[in-house]
Design a protein around this nucleic acid. Structure first.
Lengths: 155, 155
DNA sequence: GCCAGATAGTTTACATGTTATGTATCGGGT
DNA sequence: ACCCGATACATAACATGTAAACTATCTGGC
């Protein structure tokens, strides 16, 4: 009987089912994040950098910095630095908009697309492997419940 | 039809159910973490600091630094700093073990217990509120599936 | 006794998230 | 034309996570 359950028992039982549910989500997420981060690190990317590149590739056209931030549920300052990093790595471009000079548009470069293309299969495999013991029907159930948790939140 | 689904559609459809499942977990976790962090911040604590205090309270006896780290699935350097912070805040004690002088035992102080006691109800309420629309049976399902995801991982 | 390898923590360097604050620019009302 | 509030980012300050390197201490074998 491995990690989670025994660990948590040690520090007292759950105070409520809701708390147990919350902890289960947080712990599982931690695990998944770590695995993804390790894979990305092998290619010199951080999860944030990867997400920005994904968003830009998905969009197809240049995007203002803050639009990228919004899609990552992130605050502006974080994006500024990630964009700086990606510029240094030469995976994106950043140009001041001529319509509105407050705005800076970022776009993915071919080098960035190439990197993403190289990552697509390994990442797909990672996720497939992570979920390999979970039936499709359980996955759909999971997605449904998690979605309803997110959608019912006021903020 | 709100956030997640529409957002993700924008950047291209999911590549697989496994990927969708993964993203659902990560996004939901983000949401929960943010809500908890906000509540804790009102009391001057970070999530890490709170977790360390919880572990120490649950344990009841002094614990070596690295033992605390393990239970948080964290690496040693992170603990060093969180422990330092909690020392500065005067919520814990840290004493060198006389048996093995490499080891430093940390323990929660009464002030720390008092703070946790003050937090218990609000946090319970937060979790209850987050899950208020989710049936107990769905929660149990969620816990079961998430647990099986975690338990089936090799590392 | 002594030394090599293991173990507990710390320190350093880097990337990121957060809030608060500063800067440039835009845009609408007078 | 001008000014004031809003908007797009950038910067600063702080806490945290990670890997890598370092210190102190312990321990088993010779």
């Amino acid at each position: 009987m491995p990690s989670l359950k025994s660990e948590l028992k040690k520090r007292g039982d759950f105070d409520s089912v809701e708390q147990e549910t919350t902890l289960a989500i947080l712990r599982t997420s931690d695990l998944l994040e770590n695995r993804l981060a390790r894979l990305l690190r092998e290619h010199g990317l951080t999860p944030s950098q990867y997400n920005v590149l994904r968003i830009l590739r998905g969009e197809g056209t240049p995007l203002p910095c803050l639009d990228v931030a919004q899609r990552m549920i992130q605050v502006a300052p974080a994006i500024t630095r990630v964009v700086d990093q990606l510029l240094k790595l030469d995976y994106i471009t950043k140009t001041q908009s001529s319509q509105d000079r407050r705005v800076y548009m970022v776009d993915i470069k071919p080098s960035g697309r190439k990197l993403l293309a190289k990552l697509d299969k390994p990442i797909l495999n990672l996720h497939a492997n992570t979920m390999r013991h979970i039936s499709q029907s359980d996955q759909k159930t999971l997605i449904r419940i998690l979605e309803s948790i997110r959608d019912r939140q006021s903020d």
